[in-house]
Amino acid sequence: MSISFRVSNSSKFQVSEFILMGFPGIHRWQHWLSLPFALLYLLAIGANILILITICQDSTLQKPMYHFLGILSVVDMGLATTIMPRILAIFWFDAKVITLPECFAQIYAIHCFLGMESGIFLCMAFDRYVAICHPLRYPSVVTSALILKAILLMVLRNGLFVIPVPVLAAQRNYCSKNEIEHCLCSNLGVTSLACDDRRPNSICQLVLAWLGMGSDLSLIILSYTLILCSVFRLNSAEAATKALSTCSSHLILILFFYTVVVVVSVTHLAETQTTLIPVLLNVLHNIIPPALNPMVYALRTKELRAGFRKVLRLGLKNK
């Protein structure tokens, strides 16, 4: 496909569109990956919608923990929808061309939703900390007003926090190659095509990641350290087991989410050129958590499983 250009105000040639080539090294048969990706996307959307319906209809689930879970489901669907329709369009319809504004908008959306997911995990860790370490104060501390304030703060923080990432990417001069060896517009993948210095973008992304997700992870670790200290002081083994079981689902998702973030970051920094592994990990990190989160909570949470059964029985009766 030919490269298209436009002339900027500084009389430099500037590409007007990018071409998403897909997975590097496997372009000829990458379309076979569309089936598992489509199934993961359908699972993510369907399972999260089921969680939202269950939480809304089951009165026993009107608790802060499940409110945060419902918000996590909304964010997960947003994250999955940000990338999967575009990836499937590349595989099925060879729709590889993406305009610069669309590409920078996708960069913003991906970073924003990932930051929101990290923020929700922090809110859920705080919820579990108060519930286990200060159970008598829980009803007065974790209120509907607090949940609303936390969610608004999270949305504003991430909505404003990640603006410099696409803005800096848009200020680079893209004057030659416009083929991105990726299925989506990642900040580092796009800016690697720039003809000028891309170090400001790399430094900005690194700093914002440490200030955002890094601070969230630090506070989550602190919360669970205090939770474990409180649990180990319990005289009843049954009470300790029950307290830990309420946190198990959350811990599994946190470990998966942040482990993959670290692995993706390290592989991107270690590779001198775009290769299959970091690109595949980057895509999977944006689709597996939305599909995995509902399944983990469904398998590990008795109240949620009971809610699913109620909703499904109600649906069958209505038919």
Rank of each mutant, 00 (worst) to 15 (best):
A125N: 03
I151N: 15
F91Y: 09
S192M: 05
L188K: 07
L193Q: 02
R86T: 05
V190R: 00
Y108V: 01
L148C: 15
C133F: 12
A89Y: 00
D94Y: 06
V97W: 00
M154H: 10
L146A: 13
D197F: 12
R157H: 11
S118T: 12
Y174Q: 09
S118G: 15
F121R: 04
A89N: 01
R128S: 04
G119F: 13
Q171F: 13
C103N: 04
N187A: 08
S202Y: 06
S176Q: 01
C103V: 04
C185W: 10
C112Q: 14
A145Q: 06
I180F: 03
F93S: 00
I132R: 13
V167S: 03
P101S: 08
L146I: 10
Q205R: 09
R199W: 11
P166R: 05
T81A: 13
Q171R: 10
T191N: 00
V155D: 12
S140P: 05
N201A: 05
F161A: 07
V97D: 02
D196W: 12
C103D: 01
L188G: 08
F121Y: 06
C123N: 06
S176N: 03
T99M: 03
L114C: 14
C195D: 07
C183R: 05
P164L: 11
E117V: 12
A169K: 06
V165N: 08
A145P: 03
A109F: 15
H182M: 15
A105P: 01
L193T: 01
R199S: 09
F126T: 14
Y138E: 08
R172M: 12
L122I: 04
V142Q: 04
A95H: 02
V142M: 11
N201H: 04
A105I: 08
I90T: 01
I180C: 07
A125I: 10
M116E: 13
A89V: 00
L152W: 13
V167P: 02
L114Y: 06
T81I: 05
C133E: 12
A170R: 14
A145S: 08
E181R: 11
G115L: 09
A145R: 11
F161K: 03
T81N: 12
I180E: 04
C112R: 10
S186T: 11
A150N: 12
D127Q: 04
E179M: 03
A109G: 04
R157W: 11
R86V: 05
F104W: 09
V141T: 14
T191K: 06
Q171C: 09
N201T: 07
S118V: 13
C123V: 01
L152T: 13
C123K: 01
G189D: 08
A169G: 02
P85T: 14
C123Y: 06
F121L: 13
L168E: 04
I147T: 09
Q106E: 06
I107S: 00
S118W: 11
K177W: 11
P200C: 11
C112L: 14
S192F: 02
P101G: 02
V190C: 03
P164K: 12
G119R: 08
S192D: 01
I151L: 15
W92Y: 06
I83D: 07
L114I: 14
L146T: 11
H111R: 08
I151F: 15
S118N: 09
I98C: 03
D94W: 09
L148E: 15
C195P: 10
M84P: 15
R172C: 14
G189L: 05
F161I: 02
I90C: 02
